[in-house]
């Protein structure tokens, strides 16, 4: 078993770790770094619960090897709020009951943030397709879509954001 020594940036901090060749980034985050915000729902890239951002693109961290993260920049749910101040998406998810059990929520928030940074004014259809890889079994998606729309409106500075 050969270990890789990896130096990467996670939520702006430089992080070093050793990992087995077959360990995924998700395994590393959860088991080696204690960052359990990303969840494993399937391990096959079909549910999106492990979504993190790597070099500006969202990925399923279960489909990235830990060794691949060397020199990359990773953003996870743990870096989304600034101290006590929640990101508008987090706040609107909370206020709009866009979560029930909450297991899919970190992945959806990370994915939604990437969408709004790329497209500040997405249509309902664009939001639905962007988030199609993030399964939610509790909500039926309605309140999730509305929360993303409301956060987007607030982030665009529209005062009538609910």
């Amino acid at each position: 078993m050969t270990h890789s020594h990896v130096t990467t940036t996670i939520n702006g901090d430089t992080v070093d770790y050793l990992c087995d060749a077959e360990e995924t980034l998700l395994d590393v985050l959860r088991d080696r770094l204690g960052m359990t915000g990303a969840k494993e729902g399937c391990g096959t890239g079909d549910c999106g619960a492990c979504t993190v951002e790597m070099d500006g693109r969202i990925v399923c961290s279960c489909l990235v090897l830990g060794a691949e993260a060397d020199g990359r920049s990773i953003r996870t749910i743990e870096g989304m709020a600034k101290g006590e101040e929640l990101h508008p998406l987090q706040r609107h998810f909370l206020e709009g009951a866009a979560l029930q059990c909450g297991i899919c929520t970190p992945g959806i928030l990370v994915a939604a943030r990437a969408l709004l940074e790329k497209n500040p004014n997405p249509s309902e259809t664009e939001i639905r397709y962007w988030l199609a890889g993030n399964l939610c079994r509790c909500t039926g998606y309605d309140k999730i879509i509305r929360a993303v729309q409301n956060a987007a409106a607030e982030m665009r500075g529209e005062s009538n954001a609910a």
Binding site: R30, D31, G34, M35, T36, G37, A38, K39, E40, T76, I77, E78, M80, A81, L86, Q90, R91, F93, L94, E95, A97, L99, G102, I103, T105, P106, L109
Partner: peptide, 21 residues
């Protein structure tokens, strides 16, 4: 309006079944 466990669930702090070590 909001729920007491909500902030932990939107920030990734909430501990689910596989999150305990």
């Amino acid at each position: 309006k909001t729920r007491p466990d909500g902030v932990d669930k939107v920030t990734g702090r909430a501990k689910f079944g596989a999150d305990m070590f």
